[in-house]
Design a protein around this nucleic acid. Structure first.
Length: 258
DNA sequence: CTCCATGTTTAGAA
DNA sequence: CTTCTAAACATGGA
C-alpha cells in the first residue's frame, strides 16, 4: 500500500489507536528493521507516541520532541494494530510492542519496507533530500519544476527529490487527467499545461485520500481501473497503450494524451 | 518456467 | 553535471 494516498490512509487509521501508548520494545529482522539503524537515529527506548505525520510516502510516528520512527512501506508494506492476545498476521516483519501489551504489526510480503528512527521528520526530509509533499505543491512549484529539466514528465513526477509522494499508478492517473503524454519533455510543457498538471496532482491525490485509497471506489472516469493491456480509455473508448519507462509500465491513452 | 508487481538505490553508460 | 537504463533487493501471484 505504498503511494501517498495509501500512506495517508494508514496514518489516519492508526493515529487514534497508537497515540498516547508507550513503547515496550520493537522487534523485527533485517532488512525491514536493522537493529543498528533503529538505534542510530534517535533513542526510542520507553518513549510514548505523541502523534503522527507524513511526508510523501514516509510515515512518521512522533515519540516526543526530537525523536520518532520513520516508516517506509516499500511495495507491499502495511500496518495492523493488534490487541495483546491477537495472533501475528501473515508476513509480519516487525512489531512495535506497547507497554499495555497491544502492538503495531508491520506486514510486508516483499520486504522492501523499512523502519528507522530519526530525530525528527524535518531532519529526515533534509537528509533524504525529498521535495515538497505532493499535497502542498503550489502552482508555482509545478511551473518551475517543469521548466527546470528536460526529461519526460512521468519521470519528473516519480522523482521524490522533486515532489514527494507520487508513484507509478497515480502518476499515470495525473497525466491522464492533464492530457499530457508520459514521455513529453517537461520543457515543452506550456504554462497552461503545467497549471492543469498542478490541478490534476491535487485533485487526484485528494480524491484518493477521501476515498481511503480504495481503488474499487475510484470514479469510473479514471484511468486507474483501466491500467491493463487491452483495456479501453474511459474518455474516448480507444485502446489504452503502455510504454516502459524507467523499467516499469506506464499506461496512457494515445489519443487523449499528447 | 515466465512475466509482472503501488519502491529505492546504485553502478555504469551516453 | 544531467539523464537514463538495468540491475539489485525479495517475494508472491497469475
Amino acid at each position: 500500500m505504498p503511494e501517498l494516498p495509501e500512506v495517508e490512509t494508514i496514518r489516519k487509521e492508526i493515529t487514534p489507536v497508537i497515540t498516547g501508548r508507550c513503547l515496550s520494545r520493537i522487534s523485527g529482522f533485517r532488512p525491514t528493521l536493522d537493529p543498528e539503524d533503529l538505534h542510530r537515529g534517535a533513542d526510542v527506548q520507553g518513549k510514548c507516541v505523541s502523534g503522527t505525520s507524513r511526508h510523501g510516502k514516509y510515515l512518521y510516528a512522533g515519540l516526543g520532541a526530537g525523536c520518532g520512527l520513520v516508516i517506509h512501506f516499500g511495495m507491499t508494506g502495511d500496518l495492523r494494530f493488534l490487541g495483546p492476545g491477537d495472533e501475528d498476521p501473515p508476513y509480519c516483519r516487525a512489531q512495535i510492542v506497547f507497554k499495555d501489551g497491544s502492538r503495531l504489526a508491520f506486514t510486508d510480503p516483499r520486504r522492501f519496507g523499512r523502519i528507522v528512527s530519526s530525530r525528527g521528520l524535518k531532519e529526515f526530509i533534509a537528509a533524504k533530500g525529498l521535495g515538497p509533499d505532493a499535497l502542498v505543491l503550489t502552482r508555482t512549484n509545478v511551473r518551475e519544476m517543469v521548466r527546470a529539466s528536460r526529461r519526460g514528465v512521468k519521470l519528473l513526477l516519480l522523482d521524490q527529490h522533486r515532489v514527494a509522494g507520487i508513484g507509478n499508478i497515480y502518476a499515470d492517473e495525473i497525466l491522464f487527467q492533464s492530457r499530457i503524454h508520459p514521455l513529453r519533455e517537461t520543457r515543452t510543457v506550456s504554462v497552461k499545461e503545467a497549471d492543469s498538471l498542478h490541478k490534476a496532482i491535487l485533485s487526484v491525490l485528494k480524491t484518493a485520500v477521501r476515498l481511503s485509497a480504495d481503488m474499487d471506489r475510484y470514479p469510473s472516469g479514471w484511468l486507474i481501473p483501466r491500467r491493463a493491456p487491452g483495456r479501453t480509455c474511459p474518455a474516448c473508448g480507444g485502446e489504452v497503450s503502455r510504454v516502459m519507462i524507467a523499467g516499469r509500465y506506464s499506461y496512457f491513452c494515445p489519443s487523449c494524451q499528447q
